[in-house]
Write a protein that binds this DNA or RNA. Sequence first.
DNA 1: ACTTGACCCTGACGTGGCGTCAGAGTGCAT
DNA 2: ATGCACTCTGACGCCACGTCAGGGTCAAGT
Lengths: 258, 258
Amino acid sequence: MRNHTVKQIAKLAGISVRTLHYYDRIALLCPTRSSSNNYRCYGEFELLRLQQILFYRQLGMPLLNIKKLLDAPDFDLENALKTHREKLLQQMENNQKLITTIDNTLREIKGKKTMTSMPAKDLYEGFAPQKQAEFETWLIEKNGSSIEAQIEDSKAHLAKSGTDAMQQKMIGLADIEAGLAQAMLDGVAPTTKSVMDLLDRHRNWVANMWDRECSLEAYEGLAQMYQAHPEFVARYERLAIGFSNYLPNAMQSYASKI
Amino acid sequence: MRNHTVKQIAKLAGISVRTLHYYDRIALLCPTRSSSNNYRCYGEFELLRLQQILFYRQLGMPLLNIKKLLDAPDFDLENALKTHREKLLQQMENNQKLITTIDNTLREIKGKKTMTSMPAKDLYEGFAPQKQAEFETWLIEKNGSSIEAQIEDSKAHLAKSGTDAMQQKMIGLADIEAGLAQAMLDGVAPTTKSVMDLLDRHRNWVANMWDRECSLEAYEGLAQMYQAHPEFVARYERLAIGFSNYLPNAMQSYASKI
DNA sequence: ACTTGACCCTGACGTGGCGTCAGAGTGCAT
DNA sequence: ATGCACTCTGACGCCACGTCAGGGTCAAGT
């Protein structure tokens, strides 16, 4: 990989030349200099460092803090990348929260002129306070666990269950889903107790698969996944026409009621 | 819902009192004033408007542009909320891109000291140029389609297929998955042509379910979903132990090779 | 050799979006 | 009356650049 000039790297990274000048001036990203004309030369090391800078910048971290972090003697690029991966997954969960906030707001304002039944604090659920971003990032950097280790743990848990136990679990799920599909066909409202009980079982099933508790927020996020993902839609429509809409709605009603 | 003072609303929304003062000064968010002491009073209307402000702010939109947008005579809150919902889903897709970038970078630097085989442009895949955020938002606001209409279209498409056709499609998927699982058990590398052909069929299947083309980027995002979601992991481990890892990896190799 | 256009450099002014602080007023409880 | 928590307006300052000025460099064309 050869060296790049400021314009080349600016274009690659989607930032301005001025930004690169500024980063050089604050010693955040210092390229080498051509001996003949003093042009800035960005090599492989600088490209990787810029990637890290962009990551932290996107998280809202002040540039001088980014510099301190990257300059720390024990900074580990590989571990940082893994930590970022986790952070991105968290951001996606937060986006789910925002989507829920939108849906709640839509439900409230639809055909209405007032929102007396919606608590004011729910209007801002999912907006991350800016000051927290830095703190969270530092915490994650300090205590972040390897994403690979987590995946391994998850698989070890599955392998321990064995194939027979897995079959039992899937039968349990099929039972719950069949009950819910039947309720839909019978015209049972999602807020009816019998449906709520089935959803209770469903949520416990998910928690069991996850090997951790399934919060109401996560449950709502899962409902969104079911509604948006093609394979889930296909799967639930196969159970019963309209079920791919009924189930997520029921799950969301459940999460609101509990 | 009663009126709030600056501190109350600042706390609710996770912003500073200073920010609210500033927003008042630039006429972005103008509360009413108490006649007795001239304190700012934020009612229901202001709370909703602040929600909108925070949404657009998060998207990187300059405040004065937010003001113009919210003050436009044809601004429709409900439609805006739906548009934002779409935008959030897109951001989640972009996060998937960033995760892929991380994984690619991790793969490259693992045990290595150089990255001569990774194109420089791939280092910054997923970082959204800041200037585009505004443009994209305006475009979406102008041309955004209703999320509900899209869901209805998707369901209409499914309903048109009928139950028998759906069964055929699921049989097609099972056939592809069985072939891939067998390849894994046979120790076939994911880059082998036979696996690639199966993945070609798989990707076409997904496109057919989506009723639109499945780009390579979307395909990679789907692989991430398969790897991270408990029900997919459970489902693929049921097919064959280790398949929940093999399939996403194969899909990502596929996307890299094509 | 000269010209042109795209790129490079440093330096400096300015902006958006607040954070911080000062000084004074308000409301409530003691 | 006093103290505390809140309110107000005004103003300075900072961060992260965007924009511009003026001059140098490089490569291709005439």
